[in-house]
């Protein structure tokens, strides 16, 4: 399953009311490391599709979501479970490192 873009209108349904864990990627076009991380997230969405959803929030088009979750640094990944952030991964980390951090938060 590929990554999906969510915006301020779809965030609550797609992320907060999602029964599965959701990995949210806050990113922007002008952020070089964000673009580098994109393909890694596609791979993760693929390999972990039966365990979590991976969605992307463009902070340019959804600044209110960036503000709500106090994002001041890109890229940042936030893991949501039951409508709340349970873990944050800052910066573009290698795939293996992200997988390791995700492992503890997947049911």
């Amino acid at each position: 399953m590929p990554t999906r873009a969510v915006d301020a209108n779809t965030f609550d349904d797609e992320v907060l009311r999602n029964e599965r864990p959701v990995l949210v990627d806050f990113w922007a076009e002008w952020c070089g490391p964000c673009r580098a991380l994109g393909p890694v997230l596609d791979q993760l969405a693929d390999s972990l599709h039966d365990r979590l959803d991976v969605v992307k929030v463009n902070v340019d088009s959804a600044p209110q979501l960036a503000a709500r979750y106090r994002v001041t640094s890109l890229p940042v990944l936030k893991i949501f479970r039951g409508g709340a952030v349970v873990h944050t991964i800052t910066g573009a980390q290698p795939r293996a490192a992200i997988e390791e951090e995700l492992a503890a938060h997947l049911g």
Partner: peptide, 17 residues
């Protein structure tokens, strides 16, 4: 504080300031 106001990448994070 890294990622919470402490940054190493102006082009990534300047937007939030």
């Amino acid at each position: 504080l890294s990622g919470h106001g402490l940054s190493w990448c102006a082009t990534c994070d300047g937007f939030f300031f």
